[in-house]
């Protein structure tokens, strides 16, 4: 057989032919034991090679560290028990129970396992934060997230509103985002979840990797591929799955307000949250309009002017009224037909 480590090394260094690929594919599909032998040879030779780059795996090291900790504690307890049992098992059992109880209490206290953190991002603002496992979350306006100060078994967070997640890989502990009774389950991915209380649907957009969307019975609703959007209404069970420009939808984390063929209803809702204003559309037929636009530094007035240039509507700022308590009413914009 002409199979040698050269084939693997060509594949490894991205210098392989279509025939090379077919050969490797064949070995993989047939579970050919030769593959392990060849790869081991490569591994043995690879040991002597000098690595020219380094990759920062400190997050992985942290995750491993966390994963091996509980077992380390159990071991200490087990060893202590073995030791004591040799002296006087009967006397020591009640004492150990008491100690164990204290230990659990103390651990809860020390490791803050029941402390829940809640972060809210007010209307008109964007907030980013790091979770205890090294994942990053961006919170859009009028949104909040709840998560434990220390992740236990699962990495579970709860949101209302819109958030973009960049999840740190941890093969042992899936990451779960709960919203509207639906869970989005991921290991290491990037995705956007939008679930505002005043909207009937939860909207998940996957930028990279894979996620599963589960209902409140933990049944799988959809296994998503990157570049797709899954919309689901928990009340009616209606859903849709469509390809989208995922980068456009996550643009808000970089301060970009992007509309890709969005209808007036969506535009109004997103602008209200983005700028912290109230917008009222007076003419029903305007709701049928669709917009395509990207705003980066524009203020609300500039944004409205640009939108107005592409469509047949006009806008007007309502004067803020002085309320009885001395404060002003919220800014209000009225949109009407031209």
């Amino acid at each position: 057989m002409n199979r040698n480590t050269e084939l693997l090394k060509r594949f490894f260094s991205n210098r392989y032919s279509r025939n090379d690929y077919q050969q490797l594919k064949g070995m993989l599909q047939e579970n050919d034991p030769a593959l392990e032998e060849l790869m081991q040879q490569h591994w043995d030779e690879y040991q002597d090679e000098q690595l020219t780059q380094t990759s920062n795996l400190s997050a992985t090291q942290l995750i491993l560290h966390r994963n091996i900790q509980p077992q380390a504690k159990q071991r200490i307890i087990k060893q202590a028990f073995n030791h004591f049992s040799k002296i006087a098992a009967i006397l020591i059992v009640p004492l150990l129970l008491a100690l164990g109880f204290l230990y659990v209490q103390l651990e809860d206290f020390l490791f803050q396992q029941h402390v829940v953190v809640e972060v809210a991002s007010p209307t008109g603002s964007r907030t980013s934060l790091n979770l205890p496992d090294g994942s990053t979350v961006w919170l859009n306006g009028d949104s909040h997230i709840r998560y434990p100060a220390v992740f236990n078994k699962n990495r579970e967070v709860e949101i209302e509103g819109e958030a973009f997640f960049k999840v740190q890989s941890d093969v042992e502990h899936p990451f779960l985002v709960k919203a509207k009774g639906v869970s989005v389950k991921a290991t290491g991915t990037e995705f956007n979840v939008s679930a505002y209380a005043d909207e009937p649907e939860i909207n998940v957009i996957l930028k990279e990797g894979k996620v599963a969307v589960l209902n409140d019975q933990q049944d799988e609703l959809k296994q998503m591929a990157s570049g797709y959007q899954f919309r689901y209404n928990p009340n009616t069970n209606a859903s849709s799955y469509t390809p989208v420009n995922a980068t456009g939808y996550s643009g808000w984390i970089n301060g970009r307000l992007i509309f890709e063929n969005a209808n007036m209803v969506e535009v109004v809702k997103r602008m209200e949250r983005w700028y912290g204003v109230n917008i009222e559309v007076r003419d029903q037929e305007l709701l049928r309009l669709h917009f395509k636009a990207t705003f980066i530094h524009e203020n609300i007035e500039e944004a409205l002017k640009l939108l107005q240039a592409t469509a047949t509507f006009k806008y007007e700022f309502e004067k803020r009224k002085l309320k009885e308590d001395g404060s002003f009413t919220d800014a209000r914009i009225i949109i009407t037909k031209k």
Partner: peptide
């Protein structure tokens, strides 16, 4: 960790998957 990471990266051609290999293997 570095040796295993770059070995896995060459075969899997994905940084994320290579990182996961390091995790899985050490666990």
């Amino acid at each position: 960790n570095q040796r295993l990471y770059f070995f896995a990266l060459g075969y899997l051609k994905s940084e994320k998957e290579a990182e996961e290999i390091v995790q899985e293997t050490f666990l």
